[in-house]
């Protein structure tokens, strides 16, 4: 795969590492055990476009959120995760 890093341009996927779904939001510190369980363990795992974390480890070292169709691997967007 080729991932369009918003900082570095299009780069081969082996420059990046992967963390999975970007949608789950880290609960507040006092959230219930169930919320924490869901955040860390449950995944939608959709067969379609997924927003996911990629880390440009061998580049700018920024965490990115990439929108990618996991059926075709077509990438429709890639933005800095902090943006």
């Amino acid at each position: 795969m080729r991932i369009p890093c918003p900082h570095c341009g299009e780069r081969a996927s082996e420059e990046f590492s992967y963390l999975g779904a970007a949608d789950p939001v880290r609960p507040a510190a006092d959230a219930s055990a169930a919320e924490w369980h869901d955040y860390v363990y449950l995944r939608d795992n959709p067969a379609g476009v997924m927003r996911e974390f990629w880390h440009h480890v061998h580049g700018c070292r920024r965490w990115l959120v990439v929108a990618r169709d996991v059926r075709t691997h077509a990438i429709s967007a890639a933005v800095d995760a902090g943006a």
Binding site: G20, A21, D38, Y41, L42, R43, D44, N45, P46, A47, V70
Partner: peptide, 18 residues
């Protein structure tokens, strides 16, 4: 590999990625 998709048909979310 399709477990999440099929489980979702019954409204379940699983601790699984494909």
């Amino acid at each position: 590999g399709n477990s999440s998709r099929v489980a979702a048909l019954a409204g379940l979310r699983l601790p699984i990625e494909s």
